[in-house]
Amino acid sequence: MTTVSTPHGEVWVASPPAEAGVRDFDEFYAASFTPLSLQLYAYLGDLGEAQDVVQEAFCRAYARWSRISRYDDPVAWVRKVAWNLATSSFRRKRTALNFLRRQREEHFEGPDPDRVALTRALAEIPAQQRRAVVLHYMAQLPVAEIAAQEGVAEGTVKSWLSRGRAALAAQLKKEN
């Protein structure tokens, strides 16, 4: 005997349910985790923190998976939640944990020059511009979608992008 969770409570069935829904989530997770983590890594400058917020965003998606799986673009939902978490103080609570993780990671792998150059340059520009630039270049979102995610007018996003690009280019030239 098995019970399955439905939107209407637990329902009894005589045998284990098919695994179709579970498999969908696994595929979605496998396809989206790395790109989202890289975007958040570029923004936060810390891979451990980026992975934490993306993992948390996937947890929230899984809790609502029966609904979110039917969205046209479930990634957009997870991306928005992950970025919300990254810009909130959620991550401040993880500082101790991340410190330990950083220590461990640095034993195994030295930072790559490519990574250092970009994260150092990004760190020099204001957070809003940094978000707009990362969403534009890495998530490849159009201005309208960045505006929707950030809850601001498209003109504001264009202004962030324009300033962010100029500032980032200047920083990168300095690095080179």
């Binding site: 989530f25 696994d26 997770y29 496998a30 985790f33 790395t34 983590s37 890289l38 890594y41 570029a42 891979l47 992975q51 993992q55 996937f58 899984y62 990671e105 792998e109 790559d112 020059p113 490519d114 990574r115 150059a117 970009l118 994260t119 340059a121 630039v133 270049y137 890495m138 690009r165 980032l168 280019a169 990168l172 030239k173």
Partner: peptide, 22 residues
């Protein structure tokens, strides 16, 4: 310049991403 920097960053960092798993 910026596109190249992001591409280099993604290529360099992607192997380090560790998914905790679904």
């Amino acid at each position: 310049l910026i596109s190249d920097a992001f591409a280099g960053f993604s290529a360099a960092a992607a192997p380090s991403v560790r998914a905790a798993g679904s």
